[in-house]
Nucleic acid binder design. Structure first.
Lengths: 206, 206
DNA sequence: ATTCATCTGTTATTTTTTTCACATTGCAGC
DNA sequence: GCTGCAATGTGAAAAAAATAACAGATGAAT
């Protein structure tokens, strides 16, 4: 499996799944591309194309079977049963992210959190054990964690990132506004709150 | 001014400015597209084209004048001196976002925060006054706030969003994983942490 | 059983975004 | 003042993404 999919499609698949997860308890067993598109401000064509790309075939009259859809998206974008994630930086943002992940029913699983503050260490945060950052190398290696979330202050970003990469991390979700210099085989995804805000500021119409 | 720019370009312009803001204290007065591109994992062509689109002309030998660049980006993507922003939902995430914005030197300015929790109300959070959500309509209207950040729990998302829109908000940065149904003239930007994580999970290579 | 409206699956088209390629420019060094 | 290297500026090409268009399928209605 695991065909080469466009990044945008992968993003949307994740969104479809999460939306439909809430939907599946309702009466309907099927959903039309129109409906799904309307719920997500997309076009029906876009939805159909995405589902076509993962090989899902819907019923020409009833639409797509919701549970089949959820299952196939899982087969396509998930890896093992659950993927381990480390989080570095237990501030407000770090805590918020842990809470988010825990509440969602993703297969992403935060198994360790790190900070330099010794007061935060050796506790549990929403079930996640917190360690001192100096132990990150060992724990990430031992637990074979591949994905890290970076929520440290900007001044610690570069150093922490390089520590994470040395420990075997392959993908980073970077919340700091610092631009990280990573080797090409590392998947880096930046999220920059200020940029998003300024984009909104530019595009809103009075 | 305010020509029609591609959304991606606007995003990058915001990033250029923030990066160079840190740079401008250094010795160099100019920067080459190569250098800027390398710092941000972009291509030099992309940088040059973005700058071309806003009408910035660099020196063929020395590159782009940093302060001219910062100034012109400001003229292009900023509106007035500062743009007022409201934030709804003073949890960990809300606090983190307020901190982020305050530390960055953007012209975006969070002038009011709202929550239902009466304990959080009538205090100040990093200088931002906190009000009960019931006052949002009045305050947003009186202060002519146009942009809102939504960091409430998912179950309150739809209701809060519609309250914000009724109060005159034109653009929303949505951190809840709930999909909001907004009229076409509203600029909505969703940010979905889980989706980003799952995207990383899909694209990392072992 | 047949018609019909409507939805899917997919090819074609358009639009957007990125990359390529290269003529042009400006400064350093001779 | 030349000469040449190393930038920029930009049209053209390519790639990626979104949209349109429509043939074929299917269940509902008659």
């Amino acid at each position: 499996m695991k065909a080469k999919l466009p990044p945008r499609t992968v993003e949307r698949l994740s969104i479809y799944r999460r939306l439909l997860d809430k939907y599946k308890d309702l009466d309907e067993a099927h959903i039309h591309s129109h409906k799904l598109a309307a719920l997500l401000n997309l076009t029906p064509e876009q939805v159909r194309r995405d589902l076509m790309l993962i090989g899902l075939t819907g019923n020409h009259r009833k639409g797509y079977n919701i549970s089949a859809l959820i299952g196939l998206i899982g087969d396509t974008i998930d890896r093992e049963e659950s993927q381990k994630v480390a989080l570095a930086g237990i501030g407000n943002l770090g805590k918020a992210v842990i809470g988010f992940i825990r509440k969602s029913n993703t297969r992403m699983n935060v198994v360790a959190a790190f900070d330099i503050d010794k007061n935060k260490v050796n506790t549990r945060l929403a079930g996640v054990p917190c360690y001192e950052i100096s132990q990150a190398g060992k724990i990430i290696h031992d637990e074979q964690i591949r994905i890290a979330i970076l929520t440290v202050p900007p001044e610690a970003a570069a150093e922490t990132a390089s520590l994470l990469l040395d420990s075997g991390i392959k993908g980073i979700l970077n919340f700091t506004s610092v631009h990280l210099d990573v080797p090409p085989h590392i998947y880096l995804k930046d999220y920059d709150i200020i940029t998003s805000l300024e984009e909104i500021g530019f595009f809103i119409t009075d």
